[in-house]
């Protein structure tokens, strides 16, 4: 199918991008276009203007900024998952990014695009939540920082204001002692996650000191499994009964959707099983 007509602005600078976005309330940002183009082709979206930010060098790339990495919004998934900085300091981001779509889509699709699209079935929003990323937004008025926990407001809806652009994210380096795992449970390789689990675990001498868990596709927004996290400290990794007990609350505070692939009770069950497994893998 074929997109409806739209105007196109290729931003040559950030200020041009801000201006174009501010000038048209029906403008949409085009980065890699891997979520947007299928929507346009199916005529599920009719933006008046596309503002192409794909050629702004300042939005692209991974920088080491001390206690965190800054990942620019238009850094492609492929660049993210191959980045030595990401692999070294934020391996959870690399792991989850490797499960996004397929190689060709990862060549075009962007880190920031996946976050700003805010699809709860997308893999990166849960990772942003688990790692407590700070998302950096910019507009003609200046820049501001939005904690991941406050970024995802509803299905495909973020805290970005009209005219505001996601510039990138500050991703904390969690440091030594942490292990990570992203589990994507889906029916075929290309399909969206039925449930995904982003897990980060700090452990010492076989005992969990601290754990973080965020869930993909368990509600209209990615969900932090706080109840399960609370039960993790002190659990011995080889004590399956204790780990299972701790993760039995992984689906608390979720509101899983019902769709072709899973009904809510099954998603809740999966969230519990997969959280337990993700924590064990993260600690392995």
């Amino acid at each position: 199918m074929i997109p409806a007509s739209f105007d196109y602005v290729r931003a040559e600078s950030l200020s041009e991008a801000f201006q174009a976005l501010g000038a048209d309330e029906d403008a949409k940002v085009l980065a890699g276009g891997q979520s947007l183009l299928p929507l346009l082709r199916l005529r599920l979206a009719y933006p008046a203007t596309l503002v192409d930010i794909g050629r702004l060098p300042e939005l692209r790339g991974v920088r080491d900024e001390g206690d965190h990495l800054f990942i620019g919004a238009t850094t492609t998934h492929d660049e993210v998952l191959k980045s030595p900085l990401v692999q070294t300091y934020c391996p959870l981001v690399a792991q989850a990014t490797a499960t996004v779509a397929d190689p060709a889509v990862r060549h075009r699709g962007t880190f920031g695009g996946s976050l700003a699209h805010a699809d709860p079935a997308g893999d990166l929003p849960a990772v942003a939540l688990a790692l407590d990323m700070d998302l950096v937004a910019g507009s003609a008025e200046g820049t501001r920082t939005i904690p991941a926990a406050e970024f995802f407001l509803d299905y495909l809806e973020t805290a970005l204001a009209p005219g505001e652009l996601l510039l990138g994210a500050r991703v904390p380096k969690l440091g030594p002692g942490w292990g990570f795992h992203y589990t994507k449970f889906h029916r075929v390789a290309q399909a969206w996650a039925i449930v995904g689990v982003a897990a980060a675990v700090r452990h010492q001498d076989g005992v969990i000191a601290e754990g973080r868990v965020a869930l993909t596709n368990m509600g209209a927004v990615p969900v932090r499994a706080r109840a399960a996290e609370a039960g993790l400290p002190g659990v011995a990794l080889d004590d399956r009964t204790a780990l299972r007990a701790a993760t039995a609350s992984a689906d608390d505070a979720t509101d899983p959707p019902s769709d072709l692939h899973a009904r809510p009770d099954y998603r809740r069950h999966l969230a519990r099983v997969l959280t337990e497994r993700a924590i064990r893998s993260a600690a392995a």
Binding site: P38, L42, V188, A189, Q190, A191, L260
Partner: peptide
């Protein structure tokens, strides 16, 4: 191929109708 009770096809795209890839 799934239709809902109103006769709408719910598996109208390749994103919903799961044709297996080499990885599957």
């Amino acid at each position: 191929a799934v239709y809902d009770a109103d006769g709408n096809l719910l598996t109208g795209t390749m994103a919903d109708y799961l044709v297996p890839s080499a990885a599957d």
